[in-house]
Simulated assay, not measured.
Amino acid sequence: MEFRYLGNSGLKISEITYGNWLTHGSQVENDVATRCVRAALDEGITTFDTADAYANTVAESVLGEALKGERRESLEIFTKVYWPTGPKGPNDTGLSRKHIMESINGSLRRLQTDYVDLYQAHRYDTETPLEETMQAFADIVRAGKALYIGVSEWTADQIRQGHALARELGVQLISSQPQYSMLWRVIEGEVIPTSRELGISQIVWSPIAQGVLTGKYQPGQPVPEGSRATDEKGGASTIARFLNDDVLERVQRLRPIADELGLTMAQLAVAWVLQNDNVAAAIIGASRPEQVSENAKASGVRIPQDAMRRIDEALGDVVERDPGKTAEGAPRTRAA
């Protein structure tokens, strides 16, 4: 396993990070989730990403239990705040000082730790002054409950404003967590250049495009039984944008490239996002321990420039590059 610095901080994280969105406390039983975490540790993964909203707080509890007994100083644990949790009352959502302060305490309790290495704003809150949000984050860092702060799915302008306020408050905003894959490159136009300028790294989610880049979804064929596309708890809706024959046919053109490099399709997809020097880590999820072991082997892979060019040619115009998609997909008001 190789490690990279997170932003301009001195914190190193494993370039393959294990995340438990849509799996722990939802798609898989707790014993399987624990085996997936153990597999991650066996592969040298030290960085774990979760959020209080995943399975309405259950995912954090499962991760905390799975990591019990590990040396805390040898792990990097990330979580997030924004989406509704608990009974989903009027203050159980957003980035108000009240919700942030209550949420960090709940996350630490569920994760069975005194601090998280990175605390992230899961989305931008249009209904709370940014100054209030950043002051709350700064207070959490000063209290020792988080070491660093980050954001997820913020636009370039929002990142710039948040970074400026963080500097004024004497804390480090060092990361952005966006969706990024061969098929979804919307951060390349604005978010990545801004982040490079400010000393912020990307921790990217969905590097395999919800499983589409594994090649298991075939054009003109029904989706495989038990796949994410059949999961009505959230998986099916997130993968839907990629499930058209044009995209699926283009993805099949990647198979010869993966074969020539001695990689699985999934390993090629994970290695591809890691070629970007602004990406500190690719988050992988799993419903089986074997998936963790397979995808972790993308660490350290260097894809030749000729193969990178052929990937672009194979995918052609099915790649989404519009930087406006980040703002388009953001909540206009707080979710209830």
Rank of each mutant, 00 (worst) to 15 (best):
G220L: 02
Y124T: 03
V37W: 00
W184Y: 15
P224D: 03
A336Q: 15
L315E: 01
D114V: 12
A236P: 08
I208G: 01
R332A: 15
K98L: 07
N8G: 09
T85F: 04
S152Q: 04
G150S: 11
G199I: 12
I77T: 04
E76W: 00
I283G: 09
V223A: 11
D92C: 13
L274D: 07
D246R: 15
D259R: 13
A39W: 01
N56L: 13
V151D: 10
T214G: 12
Y217D: 02
A282C: 11
Q177P: 05
L254W: 02
A281V: 12
R288G: 05
L165D: 00
I283M: 13
R71H: 11
G144S: 14
E313S: 02
T85N: 01
D49I: 04
T333P: 01
L75F: 08
N244K: 14
T133R: 01
E132V: 13
I200P: 06
S103C: 13
E190P: 13
I257F: 11
T264E: 09
N20V: 13
V251F: 03
R196P: 00
I174C: 14
A66T: 06
Q305T: 14
R228K: 11
R321T: 15
R253A: 05
N30R: 14
Y180K: 12
D114E: 15
M101F: 14
V171W: 06
G220T: 09
A146W: 05
A327E: 11
P84T: 01
D49H: 05
G235S: 08
Y54M: 05
V58H: 13
N30F: 09
D259L: 13
T85S: 12
D231R: 10
I174E: 04
D317F: 04
A209T: 07
D312H: 15
L75E: 05
S9H: 05
M134Q: 04
S96N: 10
L118W: 06
V273G: 08
L111T: 05
Q135F: 00
S96L: 13
L248P: 11
V62A: 14
K145G: 01
